[in-house]
Amino acid sequence: MDSVKQNTPFTFLNILRSFRPINLLVIGATQFIIYQFYFTQEAICPFLGLKGYLLLPFILTTMLIAACGYLINDFFDFKGDLINKKKYKLSNPVVYLKIYFTLLILGFVISLWIALELGNPFLALIYILANAVLFLYSSHLKSVPLIGNIIVSLFSSFVILILVIFEFDYITCVFEFDDALAKFNIKTILFYSIFAFFISLSREIIKDMEDVEGDKKMDVKTMATIHGIKISKSYASLFLFFNIGLSSSWIYKLNGLVENSLIILPILLLILPQIVLLAFLTKAKVKTDFSKNSFLAKVCMLLGLICFTLYTL
Rank of each mutant, 00 (worst) to 15 (best):
V4A: 04
K5Q: 15
T8R: 15
T8S: 12
T11K: 14
L13F: 06
L13R: 14
I15C: 09
I15Q: 08
R17Q: 13
R20M: 01
I22H: 12
L25V: 10
I27Q: 03
G28C: 09
T30K: 08
T30D: 12
F39Q: 01
Q41W: 13
A43N: 13
G49T: 02
G52H: 04
Y53L: 10
I65L: 08
A66G: 10
I72M: 05
I72R: 11
F75Y: 15
D77N: 07
D77P: 07
K79P: 05
K79R: 12
N84T: 11
K86D: 07
T102H: 07
I105Y: 10
L112G: 02
W113S: 13
L118S: 04
L125G: 05
I150M: 14
V159S: 04
I162V: 15
I165M: 12
F166C: 07
F166P: 07
E167N: 06
F168R: 13
D169E: 11
T172K: 14
E176F: 15
K183E: 10
L190W: 06
F191V: 11
S193R: 05
I194K: 02
F195N: 03
F197H: 06
S200Y: 02
E204R: 02
E210A: 03
V212L: 01
E213H: 09
M218R: 07
D219V: 09
D219R: 02
M223W: 15
A224K: 10
T225E: 11
K230L: 13
N243M: 06
L246G: 08
S249D: 10
I251A: 13
Y252G: 02
K253Y: 15
N255Q: 15
V258D: 14
E259W: 00
I267K: 09
L268P: 04
L269K: 04
A279H: 15
F280H: 06
A284Y: 03
K285V: 00
S291T: 02
N293E: 04
F295P: 02
L296Q: 01
L302K: 01
T312Q: 13
L313I: 14
